[in-house]
Design a protein around this nucleic acid. Structure first.
Length: 131
DNA sequence: CGTATGACCATGC
DNA sequence: GGCATGGCCATAC
């Protein structure tokens, strides 16, 4: 799919953030969107994930806010198998505990080097956001 | 233009 | 806790 330049420009940032999610942990579309900031919401992150080319981008570690895989069919099976091989557990309803496996943003060092900064927030004091 | 559809989410009941 | 609604951004007809 084609996108306007403003949105396409943010895709690399989305990929850079997703690359920071370590094995055995997961994040959500909405969290990635908030970290990247700018003209980026959860749907755009989903769009970016659908077009990943770089094999170093761990797209399988991005799930929805309910802790569930948003894909269907064979792709969903692939995503779940990859996560389980990293130690991520699913309950009987196919749900991951974000409490246990959730990733809460890049470390401060990486953030500083890539032009992000800490932004105090009532909900999550450690939430990062773009300048 | 309005409408439908997405690897989405917060809110309210 | 499930379900509906509206909002979000973008695309296709």
């Amino acid at each position: 799919m084609e996108h306007n330049p403003e949105v396409r420009a943010v895709f690399p940032r989305i990929y850079e953030v997703v690359k920071q999610v370590p094995p055995g942990q997961v994040t959500t579309y909405g969290d990635v969107a908030r970290i990247v900031g700018g003209c980026c919401d959860a749907r755009v992150v989903g769009e970016a994930m659908a077009e990943v080319q770089d094999p170093e981008v761990p797209w399988h570690r991005v799930i929805n806010a309910k802790g569930m895989i948003s894909l269907r069919g064979a792709n969903a099976v692939t995503q779940r198998r990859r996560l389980e091989s990293e130690g991520v557990a699913f309950n009987e309803r196919g749900q991951v505990s974000l409490k246990r496996f959730g990733w809460h943003g890049p470390d401060a060092e990486w953030a500083q080097q890539h032009g992000y900064h800490m932004l105090a927030s009532a909900d999550d004091p450690n939430q990062m956001r773009l300048f």
